[in-house]
């Protein structure tokens, strides 16, 4: 339901009705006047392009929380990449272990999914995800080296699912180590162990 037709006694009322049907804000739609007579105006209300819609939504969420965001959206092969930058408040937006960033990601993609079901969105604050990914790759590599030399198992810090995927992906390149997890929930830990098959 990206588009609705709405009518009202004047233009403002017609748009208002359309917004109420779609349950969005005025900034997220484009409208087109279909017919205009004395007592009735008909409009066609459409949701904006994914890119513009995303930028409006993100800036609304952040400004109503009291931040002053600088939003940049770029397109990559999977979908849209949204990078948020603020002055001095990046740390708050990332949160402990990326908790707030995760929430932003979840809410933004959930709200966008209503109108653009197949769009993939990656939310980032000040390039945090990239830095973290690079760090994880390096760390995984370094630990794998130690494991190979000593032949003993070593544990990584608790990781989120996505981070775990990155580590797994990186370690698939290195032969002689395998990966498994122990524990559940918050205390779920990733263990890197030597793989006997390659000895």
């Amino acid at each position: 339901m990206k588009m609705v037709r709405a009518s009202g006694t004047n233009l403002a009322e017609a748009i208002e009705n359309g917004i109420n049907i779609l349950r969005v804000r005025k900034e997220e739609i484009d409208c087109e006047i279909l017919s205009e007579t004395d007592g009735e105006t008909q409009v066609k209300v459409t949701i904006k392009e994914p890119r513009q819609h995303l930028s409006e939504l993100a800036s609304f969420i952040l400004t109503s929380c009291g931040f002053k965001p600088n939003i940049r959206i770029s397109k990559d092969d999977k979908g849209l990449y949204l990078n948020i930058k603020t002055k001095h408040t990046d740390a708050i937006l990332i949160g402990k272990k990326g908790e707030t960033l995760w929430s932003l990601q979840y809410l933004i993609s959930r709200l966008m999914k209503r109108f653009h079901p197949n769009l993939k969105i990656l939310v980032d604050v000040g390039g945090y995800r990239m830095r973290r990914n690079n760090f994880l790759k390096k760390k995984a590599e370094a630990i794998a080296c130690i494991v190979l030399q000593t032949g003993r198992e070593m544990a990584l810090d608790p990781l989120t699912k996505k981070e775990q995927q990155i580590v797994e992906h990186k370690l698939a390149e290195i032969k002689g180590v395998k990966i498994y997890t122990i524990g559940k929930g918050v205390s779920k830990n990733v263990i890197i162990a030597p793989n006997d098959e390659f000895k």
Binding site: I61, C65, G66, F67, T89, I92, L93, G95, E99, T100, W102, S103, L104, Y106, L107, R110
Partner: peptide, 18 residues
């Protein structure tokens, strides 16, 4: 509880500024 958790986390972050 993911949605509720996400909303609460963002509210906490917003209030942290104040």
């Amino acid at each position: 509880g993911r949605t509720a958790k996400a909303i609460r986390t963002i509210l906490t972050a917003a209030a942290m500024k104040q």
